[in-house]
Design a protein around this nucleic acid. Structure first.
Lengths: 335, 335
DNA sequence: TTGTAGGCGTTATCAA
DNA sequence: TTGATAACGCCTACAA
């Protein structure tokens, strides 16, 4: 592989000039630049980015840590990060952690190892180095997206999960439903707790309750949505509406209800949160709250870029709006 | 940030010894190792991977280029690559190309730039550098997965798309369907041409045809599946079975058929190819051909690793098996 | 078992 | 507008 020295030799200039021609063309005479350009073409030269990175102490890459990629929500988020990263010549490293702190830590080390400039976290877990950070130490280049524990002073972007869930509940209440069940996420997650709180809040405002026996536990997967619905039916619970903490579980639940001969929405109204790609095409199409997933990713990446410039002056929290989308899986209660 | 020099000073050894303690612990006396370890802990040292990478001329990273991440097929594939990469201490860089050759080329340059050791391509596009490769030049570290043009001597892993599609057609024919329609992918893609060929082959073996007017054009998306089904219905075509080139279009088609008051499978049997995550949970659940998507990713990464060791001796093609999965979206034809 | 020293390919400072 | 040169942090012959 040709290097900058070869180019310099071939073009009859110093390596400094070649480097300048590449990074600050304005400082190089046109004619010299032409010669260099030609040498580059002839020798098929590509700059060694690793060497540049070592010298400049900057990798132009960020890590996105996500628990899993098997979720359209994640996909849309990653797409958003990519969009902004691309505009800024930044590469995106995807880290699939599967919720494993060790895996997360190993990727986090890449920041200290200078292979990445920062990390965007869509994960429930948090790198242990972040937890161990001493008071007063400068904040590391980490942006939190949606899921997070409390007590970090990192920039973060999120939606208002409590409000979103409350909107879901309010919609169902407004349709006249009284017996309302729910499929919950893992209570260990802040997001799930927020959505639970929102459900209750929205129902209470309409004078309704969400008793424990009408709550099924899930983990945001299709499978758990189906299992949750089956569990409710097996217990003999009666309900005319089912609030699901996300769309994936809602689709799983619809599948399960129909498998038991119940009709959606005639017998049970089902509603989710996310408005992911499949929601508009399910059978019936799913009423849900639309979250600006791609924008969350874009915003997270912007916070990352801002943070790199000025860690202290950077914005610490961005909350993006959500919106209820009515489709065919909900309808007014009829006796 | 502490570097290897600081550790050497603190431990009272040379930097060579520190480096050895890190990379070839066997060559270092226990007692020395202990001192070094302690110094590392005290100074909170992390090796600079960029410097190591520059020196060793190896990045321990591979790029996966995919057109889009908005596809459960892609997700499962990436997961497979990740699985094997992780076991081998290799990082995975995700490149979302959106089918744009420029974006792909920019990522491809990272190989010449030493930021990545190779590229796994799930893309329809191919880096221009690959096309421009001269006869006799050593094959670049690129592994092709599933989608590819002809005429490359790169290692590749794929399924037999013709066979898979033929199995789909055979299943439908065996159920007694005579009027069979189809939603196709983009004819520009090899995969789509193969699946079309398979459909025809399977039907012909049963004495059936696939006339042009019963083919709707799609692009593998949910939306195009729905649009394709609508188009067939709007043209007044009659059919009792619908072959879809992938599951996503099949789900879109089911949505469209139901929206028009047709029942699946009572009025129309629908079948796809992929067996992606949602297929088992759709309404009705989808009969399809299961492709070993995650294994394709794993195999691709293994080929990448082998190729890095011995480019000429490396295996050039791996074909993985598929399997028909019967679910509720197909049934025997009844008058 | 350990140390010395050259080099990986850039970038950036300083001087010319 | 250009050139010489010192880092950047690590790895690895080679020597001791």
């Amino acid at each position: 592989m040709a290097n900058i020295k070869d180019i310099a030799a071939k073009a009859g200039v110093s390596i400094a000039t070649v480097s300048r021609a590449l990074r600050q063309p304005a400082l190089v005479k046109d004619k010299t630049a032409k010669r260099i350009e030609e040498a580059i073409r002839e020798l098929d030269y590509t700059p060694n980015l690793v060497a540049a990175s070592l010298r400049r102490q900057k990798a132009d890459a960020v890590i996105i840590a996500v628990p899993s990629i098997h979720n359209p929500f994640t996909s849309a988020f990653v797409q958003g990060v990519e969009n902004v990263a691309r505009e800024n010549g930044t590469k995106v490293l995807l880290a699939l952690t599967e919720g494993d702190t060790q895996i997360l830590d190993r990727h986090y080390d890449m920041i200290a190892g200078k292979q990445a400039d920062g990390m965007i976290l869509l994960d429930l877990a948090v790198p242990s180095a972040l937890l161990a950070r001493k008071e007063g130490a400068p904040p590391p280049p980490v942006v939190l997206a949606c899921e997070y524990g409390e007590g970090f002073d990192q920039p973060r972007v999120r939606v208002n999960d409590v409000d979103a869930a409350a909107d879901v509940a309010a919609h169902i209440a407004a349709l006249g439903h009284k017996k309302v069940a729910c499929i919950a996420g893992p209570a260990a997650q802040r997001m799930s707790r927020d959505r639970q709180r929102g459900f209750r809040l929205g129902l209470r405002r309409a004078g309704l309750e969400l008793p424990e026996n009408l709550i099924a536990a899930g983990d945001y997967s299709l499978e758990s949505g189906a299992a949750g619905a089956f569990a409710l039916l097996d217990r003999g619970e009666k309900f005319s509406a089912l609030l699901c903490e996300n769309d994936e579980m809602a689709l799983g639940a619809i599948h399960a209800l129909c498998a038991r001969g119940l009709r959606v929405p005639e017998d049970v109204s089902v509603i989710g949160i996310d408005n992911f790609r499949f929601s508009a095409f399910s059978n019936p199409s799913l009423t849900t709250v639309s979250l600006p997933t791609t924008q969350i990713g874009e915003q997270a990446m912007r916070l990352m870029l801002d943070f790199a410039i000025d860690a202290d002056g950077a914005c610490r929290e961005v909350i993006l709006p959500h919106q209820l989308i009515e489709r065919d899986s909900t309808r007014p209660y009829r006796g």
